[in-house]
Computed example of a mutant assay.
Amino acid sequence: MALSSSRFPVPNAFELLREQYAKRLPARLQDLRGPTHGSVDLPLHVAWSGRRSYDVEQPRSRMGLYRTVLAEGQRQDLVAFLNRDLLLGQWPVLRTLISRPLREAWEAAFPELAAVRSVPAA
């Protein structure tokens, strides 16, 4: 007997990923009190492959740090390694470098991120 897909709907992979990311979010952006200066060495459970050390004061290095922590970090990692003001400042570019489920989870939870979606004209 074949199972009907209407009886047992296949979970939407996008929705599942977005929910996974949403579960990790801090309660408020103000909870993100990561460093604004110096070097950050990520633990293996966050940076399990490749680069682990980042210079927060170098924009490209910081972008790499934030991409990694957003994608792989748990709630305590987000709070420890991300800084609210730095996240808001680089969100217009950062949002184009992260996955859609991740981006939508953050923008749905934090309207201030959605408000800074586009890069201001020079």
Rank of each mutant, 00 (worst) to 15 (best):
G89S: 14
V46R: 02
L113G: 06
R100E: 10
Q76I: 06
D41P: 02
R117W: 07
D55G: 08
A115H: 08
Y21F: 15
L97T: 08
A71F: 03
P101H: 07
Q30A: 15
G64N: 05
Q90W: 01
R95P: 07
V79M: 06
A108L: 03
V93C: 06
A2D: 11
V40F: 05
P26F: 07
D77M: 02
V116W: 00
L78I: 06
Q58Y: 01
V10Q: 09
A27D: 13
D31F: 05
V10F: 04
G50S: 12
T96S: 14
V119P: 00
L82T: 01
L65E: 01
T36Q: 14
D77Q: 05
R18V: 08
S53A: 13
A2V: 14
A71G: 07
L87Y: 09
L3C: 11
W91H: 03
R52N: 03
G34Y: 12
W48F: 15
Q90C: 12
V40K: 01
F110D: 02
A122V: 07
L42K: 03
R117C: 06
L17I: 04
G38F: 08
Y54G: 05
G50Y: 09
L78K: 07
H37N: 07
L65S: 01
Q90L: 10
A115R: 09
Q20N: 08
L3K: 10
V69R: 08
A114E: 08
H37Y: 09
A71M: 05
G89D: 12
R51C: 12
R28I: 03
V10T: 11
L88H: 10
A47Q: 01
R100P: 03
L88Q: 11
H45I: 02
L87V: 10
P59C: 09
L88V: 13
E57I: 06
S99L: 05
R75E: 10
Q58A: 13
P43A: 06
Q30W: 06
E72W: 04
P9A: 08
E107S: 09
G38P: 04
L88Y: 09
P43I: 07
P43Q: 02
G73V: 04
E112Q: 14
Y54V: 05
P9E: 12
